[in-house]
């Protein structure tokens, strides 16, 4: 798609996101906030795992580390005065860098291995990180919860919206850069990519760490919606499982298809999933199985295929005439 074609859509979406607090009520604004959060997580997940086909199940580790680091820092600096009070963006960037370092270390170890070992190492990382923060909270600080100073709805909304946009810009730039291209080559055929001079292990590790950093940034910003949090909330495994599911639902074809998947699923989850919790998730499970079986390119890929078929047919008919 050319830039000129999507420019009007982009402007409308941006205007909607920035003006939403003026016309949406509290509930709908909350839904939009959560949708932006999921979209940013899914885009970050897609940048590494969607391109390289190395499946990371460790989003919860990075999201939770970002969230809990920020929460602990805010508690220590504002309530307990043990640490100097810093503006929120700086704390969040620190959380992102912490995630970058963790992901770099894990990536160096587990990305050398092909296949499912990476998925296992990242899935277990979420549980290990939860254990570490659990230890900090329960054994060192002798408590169960972490208190966070309350923010009003507008502040939390704009924090998350701006973070999501920053993450989209970062991910899009990386996606179009040489790094993104190299990652895609690795996903298509790793041996061939190495032959073309791609330093595969370095590229993979850096890509993984950058994606983890973005997830951590979003986690840090998501802290603002809580007033009290605990490691079991921050490291909930849904943060690991939802981004891949949303990305697969939308399709792993282009930059925007995972975001479309995230938006659809998050909106459905917030409107249908509230009234029919179990029914909705049961149906969603069946839909995910069907998509994995019959539409390996997701909803967007499926729609594209249909559109292509229709245009081909109309072209043929016009040729006949």
């Amino acid at each position: 798609m050319r830039m000129m074609n999507i420019l009007p859509i982009l402007v409308i979406v941006l205007a909607f996101i920035f003006l939403a607090p003026f016309f949406l009520d509290v509930y709908n604004l909350g839904v939009l906030r959560e949708t932006l959060m999921w979209a940013a997580l899914t885009a970050s997940w897609f940048f590494f795992s969607g391109l390289t086909k190395y499946i990371s199940l460790g989003s919860a580790a990075f999201f939770g580390t970002g969230l809990y680091f920020t929460a602990l820092y805010l508690e220590q600096s504002i309530f307990l005065k043990n640490l100097p009070a810093l503006p929120l963006p700086i704390i969040v960037v620190m959380a992102g860098l912490l995630n970058f370092a963790i992901a770099l270390a894990i990536g160096l170890i587990s990305l050398r291995l092909k296949g499912i070992y990476f998925a296992i190492a990242t899935l277990a990382l979420g549980i290990a990180c939860q254990g570490v923060f659990n230890y900090i909270v329960s054994d060192i600080m002798k408590t169960y919860y972490t208190h966070i100073p309350p923010f009003d709805l507008q502040t939390t909304y704009y924090t998350i919206a701006i973070a999501a946009l920053v993450i989209f810009i970062i991910i899009y730039t990386l996606y179009r850069s040489n790094l993104g291209f190299a990652l895609r080559m690795i996903g298509e055929n790793e041996d061939a990519a190495i032959h073309f001079g791609v330093n595969a292990s370095l590229t993979k590790t850096i890509g993984f760490a950058l994606s983890a950093m973005c997830i951590g940034l979003m986690g840090g910003c998501y802290t603002t919606i809580f007033t009290v949090t605990a490691p079991t909330i921050a490291f909930n495994l849904q943060f690991s499982f939802m981004p891949p599911m949303m990305a697969m639902f939308g399709g792993l074809v282009t930059f925007y298809s995972p975001i479309i998947g995230a938006v659809i699923l998050s909106v459905l989850r917030n409107y249908l999933g509230i009234t029919f919790v179990h029914h909705f998730l049961i149906v969603l499970g069946i839909i995910i199985v069907i998509i994995a079986e019959f539409m390996p390119e997701g909803i967007v890929g499926f729609v594209r295929k249909i559109v292509r078929k229709l245009t081909m047919r109309s072209l043929k008919e016009s040729e006949k005439r």
């Binding site: 891949p244 697969m248 998509i291 994995a292």
Partner: peptide, 16 residues
């Protein structure tokens, strides 16, 4: 890759 996604669906289905 695709079997993992089938498993995600199964997890949601069985859990709920």
């Amino acid at each position: 890759f695709r079997s993992l996604f089938v498993c995600f669906g199964l997890i949601l289905l069985i859990q709920n």
